[in-house]
Amino acid sequence: MEWFKKIKEGVSAQPKKEIPEGLWTKCEDCGEIIYVKELERNFWVCGKCKYHFRIKSTDYINLLLDEGVLEEFDRTLISGDPLKFKDSKRYPDRIKESRKKTQRNDALIAGIGKIEGRKVSLGVMDFAFIGGSMGSVVGEKVARAIERSVEKKMPLVIVSCSGGARMQEGILSLMQMAKTSSLLARQHKMGLPFISILTNPTTAGVMASYASLGDVIIAEPKALLGFAGPRVIQQTIGQELPKDFQSSEFFLEHGFVDLIVERSQLKKTVSLLLEYLSCCQ
């Protein structure tokens, strides 16, 4: 039975070769097994199918800003619980959990940074915080980012990633759409550029307000974009949805985004656009 023993030994030896956690990962789209370091180098884009993994707001800051440096504003804004809202959890508990999980106080980071030497007022949403939903705090921080753009006469860049308005703050969340969009009227009139970057997903209340109001609208490939959720649409019309429905490519085809840009080209493209959208040669 020597041969059996040997094999047994061989088998039991297997788990000792521990793969460090997170060294390899699987593409969420095509299933390709990818080396994480390689993925990081590639801005979290699958080398095989170009699937863009969802990344954190801080990753976009590193990606877009010179030296990854953001002078952050309004970091300490935090939402209240105006509705005393409770579903399976109390809203304040939900907020507390998200703050702990993300180390952020709400779903948007805002501030001033440089893109290839040009100062911009930047806002980046983070899906990890209650689905990137927009309540009073996100609305207020977007509003202030727009105002900074106006006061300091600098371009506005917003990276959106959101399921829409935050239900737990009810009508106040809805009103953030009007609040941000009407301030953009002022920004727009002053001739200041606004570049809106849509990432996966950008839908509902955010899509139906500032995210759709850029002078130039850029989408990452294969992001889910739209107003109504695909499930709601399917239930309403009772038929299968077309392939690629509500994707970046669908939005490009129907004329609602200017261009689709891969993450590796994002900074370069934004920078070039800002050059074109300034009044001096």
Partner: peptide, 25 residues
């Protein structure tokens, strides 16, 4: 707002967003 294929194809989100901005003016 109507949740349908045509509505999305013709830019439901853009139409609403644009109104929010332009009604301010």
């Amino acid at each position: 707002a109507f949740p349908g294929i045509g509505a999305e194809e013709r830019g439901q989100a853009q139409a609403i967003a644009y109104n929010l901005r332009e009604m301010s003016n």
